[in-house]
C-alpha cells in the first residue's frame, strides 16, 4: 500500500497491533525521507540525529492525532510537525547556554557605539534616526522581560529559547512579545515612522 492509499488516522489508531505497527513503519519512512531532503544541506545533522528527530516526531504526531482536521494530506500535516521537531532541537543546541541576565546586559549595551555594525549606521540619516528611535523605545517603553524578549528576537533567538529564558508558558511569552512589538510600533508611529520608511531605509 502506498502512503496516499493509507487512511493514516485510522491505521495509527488500529486496535490490531500488526496494522498499527505497519502504519508506524510506513510513517517513519515518510518522515525520514522528508527530513533527509529538507536537512540535506546542513552539515550539523547526522544519520543518528535524523533517527532521533523521527522518533520524537512520531511521539508528537500520535499525541496530536485528534488535532488532525483533514484540511491537508495527513503526510503533509505530519511532515510539518517533524520539521518543527527537528528545527526546534537544532535551534535549542545553538542557544542553550544563553542566560536572561546576559541578554538584558546585551540590551544595556545597545546604546554603545560599538554595538551596531557599520552597515546598520552607515551614512543614511533616515536609518540612523530609525535606529535611535528603536533604541530609545526598547529602553523606555518595555518592561525588563519584554525587553529581553525583543532583544532575543533582535538576536534571532528561537522563540522556544525565549520562552525558556523567560521561565513562562509559550502563550504567555507570545503575549509578552506581541505586547512589546505593539508598544514599539506605537512609539515608531508616534515618531512619524511608517512601514515604507523602514522598507526604504533598510532596503527590505
Amino acid at each position: 500500500m502506498t502512503p496516499t492509499e493509507i487512511n493514516w488516522p485510522v491505521a495509527l489508531r488500529a486496535t490490531d497491533s500488526g496494522e498499527q505497527a505497519a502504519a508506524m513503519r510506513a510513517l517513519r519512512d515518510v518522515l525520514h525521507h522528508g527530513l533527509r531532503i529538507a536537512l540535506s544541506s546542513r552539515g550539523d545533522v547526522s544519520e543518528a540525529h535524523l533517527e532521533d528527530f523521527v522518533q520524537e516526531s512520531l511521539i508528537r504526531i500520535l499525541d496530536r492525532l485528534d488535532q488532525f482536521q483533514g484540511r491537508s494530506k495527513f503526510t503533509t500535516w505530519a511532515q510539518a510537525i517533524a520539521l518543527n521537531t527537528a528545527f526546534t532541537e537544532l535551534r535549542r543546541k545553538r542557544w542553550q547556554d544563553v542566560s536572561l541576565d546576559a541578554l538584558l546586559a546585551d540590551g544595556e549595551r545597545l546604546a554603545e557605539p560599538g554595538m551596531m555594525a557599520e552597515d546598520v549606521l552607515g551614512a543614511q540619516e533616515d536609518r540612523q534616526h530609525l535606529v535611535a528611535v528603536l533604541r530609545e523605545a526598547i529602553e523606555h517603553e518595555l518592561t525588563p522581560k519584554q525587553r529581553a524578549a525583543i532583544l532575543g528576537e533582535l538576536r534571532e533567538m528561537p522563540f522556544d529559547q525565549i520562552v525558556e529564558l523567560l521561565g513562562t508558558s509559550r502563550s504567555a511569552a507570545y503575549k509578552m512579545l506581541h505586547d512589546a512589538r505593539r508598544a514599539l510600533k506605537q512609539r515608531l508611529q508616534a515618531a512619524g515612522i511608517t512601514g515604507t520608511d523602514i522598507q526604504n531605509a533598510f532596503n527590505l
Binding site: 551596531m116 552597515d119 536609518r127 538576536r155 522598507q199 531605509a201
Partner: peptide
C-alpha cells in the same frame, strides 16, 4: 555586532 539585516528585520516585524 547587530547587523543591518537584524535591525531591519525587527523593524519590519
Amino acid at each position: 555586532q547587530l547587523t543591518s539585516a537584524q535591525v531591519g528585520s525587527v523593524l519590519k516585524m
